[in-house]
Amino acid sequence: MRLKFIANPAAGSHQAGIIERAAEYMRRQGAEVEVFLTEYAGHAGELAADTAGFERLVVAGGDGTINEVINGMMPEPRPVAVIPMGTANVLALECALPEELAAQCALAVRGKPRLATLGRAGERYFLLMAGAGMDAAAVEGVNLSLKKITGKGAYFYSAFKVWLRQPVREICCRLADGTIFHHLSQVVVCNSRLYGGPFCLAPAASIFSPRFEVVILPFMGRFSLLLCLLSLFKGQTRPPGRILTTAGLTVSGRGRLQLDGEAAGEAAVEIEACPALLPLIV
Rank of each mutant, 00 (worst) to 15 (best):
89 N>S: 11
61 G>L: 05
251 V>M: 03
124 R>Q: 10
182 H>L: 14
254 R>Y: 10
51 T>R: 12
188 V>Q: 01
6 I>M: 02
118 L>I: 13
67 N>F: 02
92 A>T: 02
40 Y>K: 12
27 R>E: 15
29 Q>K: 14
83 I>M: 09
202 A>E: 00
104 Q>M: 07
217 L>F: 08
123 E>P: 02
224 S>T: 11
197 G>K: 07
36 F>R: 14
123 E>N: 12
239 P>V: 04
45 G>E: 03
241 G>D: 06
151 G>P: 04
22 A>S: 15
72 G>R: 09
98 P>S: 07
91 L>R: 00
263 A>D: 09
234 K>F: 07
55 E>W: 11
192 S>T: 01
248 G>K: 02
68 E>G: 08
259 L>A: 08
195 Y>A: 01
228 C>E: 12
73 M>V: 06
201 L>E: 00
65 T>S: 11
262 E>V: 10
123 E>K: 13
120 R>M: 13
142 V>R: 02
19 I>E: 03
111 G>Y: 14
2 R>D: 13
123 E>I: 04
236 Q>G: 01
52 A>H: 10
155 Y>W: 05
270 E>N: 10
10 A>I: 06
81 A>Q: 08
201 L>I: 13
137 A>E: 15
152 K>I: 14
60 A>R: 01
214 V>N: 01
211 R>A: 14
102 A>L: 12
104 Q>I: 01
